[in-house]
Amino acid sequence: MSESGSRNTRRRPDRAALGIAAALAAVAIVIAWSTSQAGGVAGYSPVGPKTFPYIIAGGLFILSILTAIEAMRGHFPEREAQDFPPMLWVLGGLVAQMLTMKTIGFSLSTGLLFAATARAFGKGALWKTFPAGVVFALLVWLMFAKGLQLTLPAGPLERLF
């Protein structure tokens, strides 16, 4: 989204903010386009299923222009430097959990997320945090799936119980 760590208070134009303006415009266009593709159903109300989408698309478009103007003037608030590698660990953990949840079950998959998050916050040793996470997730699974009948994906580990 933006280059990491640059303190760009006075930099004009603010390129990241221009990116936001472009994204808003893109969303507006997608909404308008998708709405124009839908078939209409006649009803008694003059305000149909397409009215609000068009209004919102129009609003987003105007906001995109205003955002672009602010960006050109460099009016966005100052941003703190960011530390991206830890963020990627958390994101990676979420992706790993999402991809594996249905296959290997709640505990193992959530263990991955747990370990990745702990790693992001500076607890390094994955070989320690992963098993810890699996045990924690398994306890949570037992409590909710067995104790409270909440259906959570079961994998090889959960089937033992």
Binding site: W127, P131, P156, L157, L160
Partner: peptide
Amino acid sequence: MKQFVWASIIAGAMALPAMA
């Protein structure tokens, strides 16, 4: 610990057909 996990996975996989 890791071995335990792997053992569990194998055991779990074997327990699967018993639930038909």
